[in-house]
Design a protein around this nucleic acid. Structure first.
Lengths: 146, 146
DNA sequence: GACAATCCCTACAAAATCGATAGGTTTAGT
DNA sequence: ACTAAACCTATCGATTTTGTAGGGATTGTC
């Protein structure tokens, strides 16, 4: 299943997408906006940076921001980084299950599954998600004031 | 990702499908055919039985067999039993990530992903897999004798 | 009825994974 | 210099997963 790490990363990226174009965002800001343990998020953001999904400036007034426009970052990019590939052949995990490099009958199934997932995850950009989140917040704010 | 347990279960079910109609198969047979730890497989087979995928007779000459014809057992049935659902909402794992039962923006993504997977896994029956495995074995045997 | 082969159940040990924390270093703006 | 921020490495604790052990219960065969 999807690791907690990955859930955090997805929400951090969403937060960056929401604040796109308004300068870098600090780890503390992201963490408090999403209730994520700060020191844990620190490691996650580094990983996002190393993978080329986020970028950062150091020192005072520093922080993180999206490395590419939100319209060009997909949910699949984050998932592949943390939890992918989901469906690998068994021989990587338990080398004794498959004999002698015989082709595995299930390999085809895993390939299909992986492919189907990639299709889904490539359809969702963080720009679209941020948009939806924005709508959601407007609606709930309206609900509150009325 | 797919747990080792589940890989074992899939291969055990495949073995049962290969021997369909030839009486029950013992745990030892399945285990040695696939290099699975016997006592571990024991627990797995029980789980498969309790889920209604396999059935068994006890005592001497006993063993396991498919509860339904192999044409009506899908890979998805086994996966759902051991590792499913793969994509659940975040709130079940980390209740603090999402505030106040607010609808999660990612929930839709997970639903789509789960649905896509179900589609793939429902297309593969153990009958078809056993068939492919049979072909494979014939081919490799031919390769060996020539 | 004894025996042996087989499934069945519970508990437990060993190992891996994951979430989270701690302490300290480097960078850059003021 | 001071401070706020990103950066790095190590480690700890809890949970999950893998696998093992010992003992039962069931059924065919002699």
């Amino acid at each position: 299943m999807i690791s907690n790490r990955c859930h955090y990363a997805l929400r951090a990226m969403l937060e960056l997408a929401l604040c796109e174009g308004r300068g870098p965002m600090t780890i503390s800001q992201i963490a408090s906006a999403r209730n994520i343990p700060v020191r844990f998020l620190e490691a996650i953001m580094r990983q996002l940076k190393q993978a080329g999904l986020a970028d950062s400036v150091r020192g005072k007034e520093g922080g993180y921001f999206l490395a590419r426009p939100a319209t060009q970052v997909h949910v699949g990019d984050v998932l592949a980084l943390f939890d992918g590939p989901l469906f690998s052949d068994a021989e990587q995990l338990g080398p004794h299950i498959i004999r002698d490099g015989d082709p595995d009958v299930f390999a085809g199934v895993w390939r299909e599954a992986e492919h189907a997932l990639q299709g889904v995850f490539a359809r969702h950009t963080f720009a679209a998600l941020a948009d939806r989140e924005h709508q959601r917040r407007l609606a709930s704010a309206e609900n509150y004031t009325i």
